[in-house]
Write a protein that binds this DNA or RNA. Structure first.
Lengths: 236, 236
DNA sequence: GAAATAGTGTCTTTGAGACAATATATG
DNA sequence: CATATATTGTCTCAAAGACACTATTTC
């Protein structure tokens, strides 16, 4: 192969190989907590530490397919029921002590996830509230990746309708509001939030039904609307 | 190494290696045109086609360092004079016919760049107006990457002060406006734009000087302010 | 003076946010 | 009834955009 650069001038097949992994920040909202799916590592390095679920990308596997597969593998949730987007790649030379590994990180947003399926694997997996996580105890550079995922999720719901991905098929405006409050760590005015959501074209559509949530007046329920972008956006 | 997944269950050192490249979308604004730095490939595959500048990440090289190095190599511009951020990674198995290559793409924003330094390389390099590019003629999946870069740049300048990266050290409000108009492909009201920029705290700071731009009343000049985020944001 | 660009003033509309008021459930 | 949540109404303030107007240059 010809050189493509003066500064990096070699045959890439001649040096120790890179491996590429797909690592996932899988978030769910259980008000008032934001939770992330973590696995406990059973082997070195970082044996016993919590880590993001992830795995190597196969030789003939598309990188998004690796992410989708891992998501289904860990949560039993197929891609049509969740949101999955690429987050960023992390590739410091020493981020994994075993070999050179570049991690392509993904962000997944999920509603009402089942308990993690540890069945076929030796690893322990669990939903952990993000504010209970000791970031310095996460394996590799996963604390950095987790932070990037949480920040991205908070930003996304400002301009897109993705907050509904954290709700079931039918939900109340109050439930949707608690998603925002959880991700943003703020309290929002119920009255103003209500009006803004209904005014945002295509954000939610009425089901015609109501549901009692325990105390208080029963709320009307809604389902996801056709819009993907929020117009106008919501502000923290 | 232990298995980290049921679905992907092998020793990554045992399969044909991945290579990782850093590919750059280097943009500059020469009103009324947005231009990108492309190199003409001299070898197969895609010999003779235009491609994004890029190169392999070295075995012990941080992925951002590979991007910084390539940027300096191609433009002679050091990182302090430009903005560089990670865009996304592209890793379809067949995106490069030679071998498995995952590309980490980066976005660079530059003002008044020198002509590309083709000196030490055999490759032809040139600034090409993006609306003159035949996307189907770009090598690999670089059309996709280029589009992602242009879209990202347009979004970034809504919420951040990065538009000033396309201006020289001192610039007029009109020059700044033409950056927005070029990236967004719209015309903005000069009066409202002027007021909004000056009202946005820390966006620009006065130099006290003026400059004549040919015809019309000479404009005051400004330099970049301390702010990184735009408050309130600008809208298209 | 005509044309061009810079910069200011002002009015209208829209959305954000505070908060009062009403509606309907549970205990 | 007290309390809690849902939903509607209303008022105020800030920002967006339209656009008239003034300022200062070149030709």
């Amino acid at each position: 192969m010809a050189n493509r650069s003066k500064t990096i001038n070699y045959d890439p097949t001649s040096f120790p190989p890179f491996a590429v992994t797909a690592d996932l920040v899988i978030l769910t909202v259980r008000p008032p907590q934001l939770e992330v799916l973590l696995v406990r590592r059973s082997t070195a390095p970082f044996a016993g530490d919590w880590a993001l679920p992830g795995g190597f990308v196969g030789p003939d596997q598309d990188i998004d397919d690796a992410a989708r597969t891992k998501l289904a593998d860990k949560t039993g949730v197929t891609i049509n029921k969740a949101h999955l987007e690429q987050l960023a790649s992390f590739g410091a030379p020493d981020r994994d002590p075993r070999m050179r590994i570049v991690s392509v990180a993904w962000l997944a947003l999920l509603a009402n996830p089942p308990e993690p399926t540890t069945g076929t694997e030796a690893e322990e997996a669990a939903w952990i509230p993000v504010n209970e996580i000791d970031h310095s105890a996460l394996a590799f550079d996963h604390a950095t990746i987790l932070n990037a995922g949480i920040e991205r999720a908070g930003n996304r719901i400002e301009y897109t309708t993705l907050a509904t991905q954290f709700c079931g098929a039918e939900f109340t405006i109050g439930e949707l509001r608690s998603v925002y409050e959880t991700l943003w760590g703020t309290k929002l005015d119920p009255a103003n939030f209500h009006r803004k959501v209904l005014a945002s074209d295509g954000f939610v559509t009425e089901t015609g039904k109501s549901c009692s949530t325990g105390r208080g007046r029963p709320a009307r329920t809604y389902k996801r609307g056709p819009a993907e972008r929020l117009n106008p956006p919501l502000h923290r």
